[in-house]
């Protein structure tokens, strides 16, 4: 898929500037990339979260497309109702089929935790929509609490660093594989620095005949504790250390999209952010070892799935 930056750069953004997200937030970068790839006409549903709160302070909005928010956990159910009714209207000849597209933007809390059932239900029912998880690895909107996307060892306000615990004591769950196991036509992981990869995935996802899912890592300067200007570098580092891998599962076939060479040690990742600083102390070396072993295990598993040797 050929993607040329020049026409995109002059295209109107469907998410307008002037929103209230933090400087350096990766969410709007990703949302704009995806909406450029998907194009109009499109209807967007958002779950409660940073993006929703910061883009819709009534009577203002940053959304230039029809947009609906109905609760925290159920954006997938909400888009189900919209998609069903529009398809019914087209089927009955009440409106012209203009290739209307349906997209959900939700955070990792809404996706990995509270919304899992709702997404699973919508995918099983086969609604045609793209679900994008903007994954900043914690509940940032409520003040940096751990979610099941938070990595092992990370500090959050509910996985504090103390005498007893060195940050979060559980590994994150592999939600992308969980959605791949729903046997939907398109599932992928992406990152904002790899914009061409991200946008072509969004194009493939929206063209799929059924539900699709893209899990995008979105560095969060407030929650991860780094300088706002480093967002894109952190996105790159996540991929080069294999803590976040770029791949896609198309009709059940796993494909690796990027093989880091060299594969950097996880300590490079830990050094880059305040949320991992405690792990750099000598007494926490065993935690780093556990984390590196888990990253390696997941990477090996992914290579096997993608049949890469």
């Amino acid at each position: 898929m050929v993607l040329n930056l020049e026409p995109i750069s002059v295209e109107r953004d469907l998410l307008a500037p002037g929103h209230r997200l933090c400087a350096g937030c990766a969410e709007t970068i990703v949302v704009r990339q995806i909406l450029h790839a998907v194009g109009e006409p499109v209807i967007v549903a958002s779950s409660t979260g940073c993006l929703e709160v910061a883009t819709s302070p009534y009577p203002y909005t940053s959304w230039r497309v029809p947009w609906i928010h109905s609760a925290f956990e159920n954006a997938a159910s909400t888009i189900s109702g919209v998609e069903t009714m529009y398809r019914a209207l087209v089927k009955r000849g009440k409106i012209e089929d203009k290739g209307l597209k349906f997209v959900v933007f939700a955070g990792d809390g809404a996706t990995y935790d509270i919304g899992l059932q709702f997404i699973s239900g919508a995918m099983e029912r086969g609604h045609r929509f793209l679900y994008v998880c903007l994954n900043n690895e914690a509940y940032m909107n409520t003040g940096i609490q751990r979610s099941s996307a938070t990595p092992f060892g990370a500090w959050t306000t509910t996985s504090p660093v103390g005498k007893e615990t060195p940050g979060k004591t559980q590994h994150r769950k592999d939600i992308t594989a969980i959605f791949a196991a729903h046997n939907i036509p398109f599932v992928a992981q992406a990152a904002p620095h790899a914009w061409r990869d991200l946008m072509s995935k969004a194009k493939k996802a929206i063209a799929a005949d059924g539900p699709s899912f893209i899990n995008v890592i979105v560095p969060c300067q407030r929650g991860w504790r780094y300088a706002p200007g480093d967002t894109i570098e952190l996105s790159r580092l996540a991929v080069d250390t294999c803590v976040w891998s770029l791949y896609e599962v198309v009709d059940g076939e796993w494909r690796l999209n990027y093989y880091p060479n060299p594969k950097k040690p996880v300590t490079d990742w830990l050094k880059s952010q305040g949320r991992f600083q405690h792990l750099l102390k000598p007494e926490n070396k065993h935690v780093v070892d556990i984390l590196q072993a888990e990253v390696d295990r997941q990477w090996t598993k992914l290579l096997e799935r993608c049949k890469v040797s």
Partner: peptide, 9 residues
């Protein structure tokens, strides 16, 4: 949730 959004269409 589905009733809500379908009603909005």
């Amino acid at each position: 949730a589905v009733c809500t959004s379908a009603s909005l269409v």
